[in-house]
Computed example of a mutant assay.
Amino acid sequence: MAVKKRADQADLREPFYSRKFPMGTYLADDSKYLPCKDDEYTEYPNDFPKCLSCRTCREDQVEVSPCVPTRNTQCACKNGTFCLPDHPCEMCQKCQTWCPKGQVMLAPCTQHSDLQCGPPLEVSSSTSTVIITVSLLLLVLLGLLLVILRKRYCCRHHGAGDGGELSRKPSVVVQNRLLQQLGIRDNRCNELIYQNQQQQQQLLFTVQGSEVPRGVELEGTASRTSDPNVETQRKLVPVPGGNPIALLNQSFNTFVDCVPFPEWKRFGRALDLQENDLYLAEQHDKFSREPFYQMLNAWLNQQGSKASVNTLLETLPRIGLGGVADRIASELIRKGYFQYEVS
């Protein structure tokens, strides 16, 4: 009977010992489990008698995320070094800085791979022909669409008294609606700039003692080119009494709102940020614009007192966003952060 009793007791105790306790905890004694202490962790359900000690990043690494009770410290190689993912990372290796003669860069150095080089990629003549043909067709379709909208607008407003000359040109409203249909002007920054243009037009007619003809608005009086080869961007300076770095930091929200979000990495590379900087920025909420904001913060930290809003504005035309740079400059002036430099 005594043997049977011991067997029954073992059966009662067996489920407890066969259990796996939640990650971030450890088995304190035979009856309970406790959460891990500071600088300790367990990543998986377990029955350990104590938690594991957190990792400390090496001198050739940077800390990507700190240690928490359910995850060890996350480390990564510093800029310009890498570790192959299928090898133990005992020491980060230096990346190549250039490709051999006759080869071009196929992929930049990352935390997990060296600089990738290879022969130049040749585009076949048939592929080039297809690309050119499609581009020409798109340009022709866009031109036809503009002509149709222009004719409809002119017919609707022909002979509108003193506004007859203006009515033969597409107004700002028609242009904005066309761009919105094409998916170009569809963010919050454009709406703010458009409202500012309307206020300036109303003020202009009030000063001249004229009345705005119904259905007709003045065209922009200072149109700018988005061609990066043409220097049209006027320099901005902080408003009197303003802290340049503080105002630059406040202007980041305007850049985030106006620059198309898919272009944020290309913008960061044009600002000479490393791939590691972009990787760290991307660790934030990927479903919002937070990585874009963190990328601008990383650029500001690197530049320090040399950082200038003009650097950001002059970089945008280099990646084909000159029009966006103009709208951002107008919005920063409207908000009272900056003003044009007086020559």
Rank of each mutant, 00 (worst) to 15 (best):
V68T: 00
T25S: 12
L296I: 08
V212P: 01
R58K: 12
E341S: 07
V216C: 11
R55Y: 13
W264I: 01
K32A: 00
Q201W: 07
V259Y: 09
V62S: 02
Q294Y: 06
F48A: 11
G268I: 04
P119E: 03
L179Q: 07
G164P: 08
S305G: 07
R188A: 15
L141C: 11
L106S: 04
F267C: 11
G322I: 15
A160V: 15
V134L: 08
E40Y: 03
E263K: 15
G320F: 01
N196C: 11
F261Q: 14
E43A: 12
F338S: 10
I328F: 11
I184F: 08
R168V: 15
I328R: 10
P66G: 14
D186V: 11
Q116V: 08
T56V: 13
L121K: 02
L278M: 04
T133S: 13
V3S: 10
S288I: 12
R188Q: 01
V342R: 14
L106H: 08
R318N: 11
V324K: 06
Y194L: 09
R234L: 06
R234H: 12
C54K: 08
V62Q: 15
R289I: 11
A28Q: 07
R327T: 05
Y26I: 05
R266K: 03
A2D: 09
P66W: 14
S31K: 09
P228H: 14
T254H: 02
T73P: 12
L178A: 11
E191Q: 12
P170Q: 10
M1C: 15
I328Y: 13
L280G: 02
S251G: 09
E14Q: 01
